[in-house]
Amino acid sequence: MTAGLLLELLSAVLVVAGTGFFTVGTLGLVRLPDLRTRLHALTKADNLGLGLVVLGLVLQAGSAGAAAKLLVVWFLAMPASAVVAHLMSRGGGLSAAGSAADGPGTPGEGGSGGG
């Protein structure tokens, strides 16, 4: 079991596990009833999924630079999805008052045609 083959195997396992988490996240998006539970499913599963996929790819990345760029992708995605989820959970709250266009608890309009 040369080191290369081991690395190859490990990254494959990581990537597959990551996509598994994505699938769970999407399942949560489709099945769960309302906005907050869907956000809960999406942010947790997808972030973990993205992290695993990135780690899997980092093992295969040729140069350190490429690996660093892959990690930057993950580090940018995490705060973005966290902040967006936070704002949406406050009812589409662009403003501090949280204009309850959709209001927490009622199913959000989006996500019906998910791919």
């Binding site: 940018l76 705060p79 973005a80 902040v83 936070h86 704002l87 406050r90 709250g93 662009l94 403003s95 501090a96 008052a97 949280g98």
Partner: peptide
């Protein structure tokens, strides 16, 4: 300019330069 949610303003101050 309604008072934007604090998290959004913080996020923008961090992310815009990046």
């Amino acid at each position: 300019p309604a008072a934007r949610a604090a998290t959004l303003v913080w996020f923008c101050r961090v992310m815009a330069p990046v």
